[in-house]
């Protein structure tokens, strides 16, 4: 039997004037999951987090977190969730420790517990040496870490992370991803929004792709990749290099071509026909096909394919 979801969203809709930010969005998140919520800019990701975090009222639909509706029982739900906004927004004048202790007070932790929790979190996030540094004096990466720590001060059942690694350098982003895994291992369900598809792929058990306020895909990263496996991807290297226009003209089986690091990445309708056309093209153009291989679709490929599909559909709507 499947367990009761910790987050359940059904037909959630939200508009801002004539802009429909969310259109009948439905999904559920199981306890203990890392759930990635993906979408291009303006897809409705932050609007969803704001509604789930009780910062924005919805127009229609049902939202249940830990068995309660955030609009009807906001205090109950907020005691059980931790939200990390896309901006690190703790109190700049307070020290790292005081920020954690103050938030502990707001969440009803007793004095001894607050102090112990602050010490534990500072240690867990490798900020013990900065305990007495004002938040405003920290680097961007450390600010991000403390903001995540602040969301965990009351041991929430669900943690919402809005673009957690946005603007961080590679080592900081990698360290933060490891921390997100640790938070999940400690028992928290993680709801993650990110632009970074690779991050979503390595971190999450399931992914939802939101495009123009609609659910475009929902499933494990493997399931979503499978949706585009029907598209054959080829990696081809020509020597010397060629122009894209003659290639597309000579090879009707090639749907799209992109060039990166000396390799052409071709999206083709059917591999066999495409190969024949590519060989003919190379002979006619007097270039050599120095390398050719098939590629596996990544989550990014799936995302881009879904984005094109949804945009085309939307444009076709009357």
């Amino acid at each position: 039997m499947r367990s009761v979801p910790i987050i359940s969203v059904s037909n959630l809709s939200k508009s801002f004037g004539s802009l429909r930010a969310l259109r009948e969005v439905s999904f559920s998140v199981q306890r203990g999951e890392i759930f990635a919520y993906l979408g291009p800019n303006g897809a409705g990701k932050t609007t969803t987090i704001r509604i789930l975090g009780g910062l924005l009222p919805r127009d229609a639909g049902e939202v249940s977190i830990c068995g309660a509706d955030v609009a009807r029982e906001p205090v109950f739900v907020k005691e059980r969730i931790g939200v990390v906004p896309d901006e690190s927004n703790l109190y700049p004048e307070l020290t790292c420790r005081r920020n954690l202790e103050y938030l502990g007070e707001l969440y009803g932790l007793r004095r001894g517990m607050r102090s112990a929790k602050a010490t534990e979190l500072l240690e867990f996030f490798a900020l013990t040496g900065r305990a007495d540094t004002p938040f405003g004096a920290l680097s961007r990466g450390l600010k991000r870490r403390l903001t995540i720590a602040a969301a965990l001060v009351h041991e929430p059942e669900v943690v919402f992370l809005d673009e957690p690694t946005s603007g961080l350098d590679v080592p900081s982003a990698r360290a933060l991803r490891e921390l997100i895994r640790s938070i999940n291992r400690r028992g928290a369900t993680v709801f993650l929004t990110t632009h970074n598809l690779q991050e979503a792929e390595v971190l999450s058990q399931r992914v939802l792709i939101l495009i123009q306020g609609r659910v475009a895909a929902l499933g494990t990263p493997a399931e979503i990749r499978q949706r585009v496996q029907r598209l054959n991807l080829l990696a081809v290297t020509f020597s010397p290099q060629i122009e894209v226009a003659p290639l597309l003209k000579a090879c009707p089986a090639v749907l799209q071509a992109s060039f990166q690091n000396g390799v052409w990445r071709l999206e083709v309708t059917e591999a066999h026909a495409a190969l024949q056309q590519l060989v003919s093209f190379a002979e006619a153009a007097g270039v050599r096909l120095s390398e050719i291989s098939t590629m596996t679709a990544s989550l990014e490929d799936a995302f881009m394919s879904l984005l094109t599909e949804c945009t085309t559909k939307e444009e076709a709507r009357p």
């Binding site: 910062l55 907020k78 906004p85 927004n89």
Partner: peptide, 14 residues
Amino acid sequence: RAGTFQRLLLAPLS
């Protein structure tokens, strides 16, 4: 302006 007011709105406070 600083965004810290949002911390109060996110906390379990009436």
